[in-house]
Each structure stands twice: as structure tokens, then as C-alpha cells.
């Protein structure tokens, strides 16, 4: 019960910082809020028994994503968002509709942390009981990541590599491109 209370407390904080990201017009403040948000997500992962994921989120979200956001702000020389109209009705309708559909979907899910849920009785049993015997690695996350799902991870690494190549192709040129000269005049 206590763990659940802490989970919910952190989640409320998370939603509050997400709303803060939504409503702030200062983009630098938004980047800082985003770092805070990632740190909260990482602590939530610890509570969900996922230290590997928490590690990654702490280093990626708080470190690299925030620095990349700041670098983009510096490169585009933007610090303020243009003031816009208060509420976008169509976006709100779509969000509420999607949310309602997802909420309806959760009614069919087993309870949070239920050990009898189908997800824990099919594949997980085999990983937990035979994982160490078959791979010799006590950390099951590493065992599944590197051995059982090696193909999957190879694909993910390829995606990371491809994204890096894409960024390099987009930003490598030294001279400033002049695609639309009439943009200033028009």
C-alpha cells in the first residue's frame, strides 16, 4: 500500500511537470522542466523494479535529451514561444476522446502488480526459471536483451546508428543553405 501511495504521489508530480511544459512560454524553462520530468520518470522506474530502465532514463532523459534541447534552442536562437490562443478545441476533443478510449481499454486489464496476470504466467516463467541456466547471466534483463532477443537488439542498434547518420547528413554542411531567398521579402 505504501509503495502504491509513493507511486501515485510521483505520478501526480509527473503530470504537474508535464502540464508545466505545456503552459510555459519560456523555452529555456521548458527544457529545464523537461530535465526534472525525466528525473521523476527515472525514480518511478526504480519503484517499478526496473533499475536498468531507470539508469537509461536518468542518463538519456536528464543528460542527453535536455542538452540536445538546449543546443537546438541555442542554434535556432529562440527563447520564447509566440503567444497563441488559449485553447485549441479540436486538439482537446481528440485528446479527450483518445483518453476515454484508452481508459475503456484498461477496464479489461488485470490489476496492477497481479502475479496471476497472463503476462507473468506465459513467457516470464521460462526466463526466470531457466534464464540463468541457459545463458549463465544472473541479470535477466541482460540475458533477454543480448541472448533471447538478440535480433531485436540488433535492429534497435541499427536504428540508433541510422538516426546518427541522418543527423550528420542534415547538419554537416558548413555553409548556410539559401533555399528560400524570397522568404524575407515576402
Amino acid at each position: 500500500m505504501l509503495a502504491l501511495t509513493v507511486d501515485i504521489f510521483l505520478l501526480v508530480f509527473l503530470i504537474a511537470s508535464a502540464v508545466g511544459i505545456l503552459f510555459t512560454h519560456q523555452l529555456f524553462a521548458m527544457a529545464m522542466l523537461f530535465g526534472l520530468y525525466s528525473l521523476l520518470v527515472a525514480s518511478l522506474f526504480i519503484l517499478l523494479d526496473a533499475p536498468d530502465v531507470a539508469f537509461t532514463e536518468a542518463a538519456v532523459g536528464t543528460g542527453i535529451a535536455t542538452v540536445l534541447m538546449l543546443a537546438t534552442l541555442a542554434a535556432t536562437k529562440e527563447s520564447k514561444e509566440k503567444p497563441r490562443k488559449k485553447l485549441s478545441k479540436s486538439a482537446l476533443t481528440i485528446s479527450i476522446f483518445t483518453g476515454a478510449l484508452l481508459l475503456y481499454g484498461t477496464t479489461g486489464l488485470p490489476k496492477f502488480g497481479d502475479p496471476e496476470a497472463p503476462i507473468h504466467t506465459q513467457m516470464a516463467d521460462r526466463f526466470i526459471q531457466q534464464g540463468q541456466a541457459e545463458t549463465g547471466v544472473p541479470n535477466l534483463v541482460t540475458a533477454v536483451l543480448a541472448s533471447y532477443r538478440g535480433f531485436d537488439t540488433l535492429g534497435e542498434v541499427t536504428v540508433v546508428f541510422t538516426a546518427g547518420v541522418g543527423v550528420l547528413l542534415l547538419l554537416r554542411r558548413r555553409y548556410k543553405p539559401k533555399i528560400r531567398r524570397n522568404a524575407d521579402a515576402g
Binding site: 543546443a71 545463458t135 543480448a146 541472448s147 540508433v160 546508428f161 538516426a163 546518427g164 543527423v167
Partner: peptide
Amino acid sequence: HIGIIVIELGVGLTVASTMLLIFFSF
């Protein structure tokens, strides 16, 4: 054991250098 260590090394190399490459480009 050998396989897991080698491919983790490959993953580590690619992720570290790609992240640095992205940051340097920006």
C-alpha cells in the same frame, strides 16, 4: 558468456559514439 560480452561491447560503442556525433553536429 563470450557472445553476450562481445555484443554488449558493440552496443556500447555504437551508442556512445552516435550520441557524441549527434551532440557535436549540433
